[in-house]
């Protein structure tokens, strides 16, 4: 876990984008809560740098055609 976060950091991705949760089968509401909570966090962080780079490449390919 720590290693993965370190790897993400070296590649310029915020380690906050990766999270572990402990959850039991009876925790349906908690699941919904986690989904919302994590989605909000990611929205706050914005798109990942990889996504942006890929998007940029796609755009340039489109223009090239």
């Amino acid at each position: 876990m720590k290693r993965l976060k370190g790897l993400l950091r070296t590649i310029g991705i915020n380690p906050e984008r990766l999270q572990f949760y402990n959850l039991s089968a009876a925790m349906g509401p908690r699941w919904a809560e986690i989904c919302n909570e994590f989605t909000e966090k990611i929205i706050a962080l914005g798109p990942s740098p990889i996504w942006l780079a890929r998007q940029k490449k796609k755009e340039s390919l489109k223009h090239g055609e």
């Binding site: 790897l7 070296t10 590649i11 310029g12 991705i13 740098p49 990889i50 780079a53 890929r54 940029k56 490449k57």
Partner: peptide, 15 residues
Amino acid sequence: GILASLLRMKATQEE
């Protein structure tokens, strides 16, 4: 595998 993945991400970011 891990290093290849990291390098691919690096390449994507560095265009």
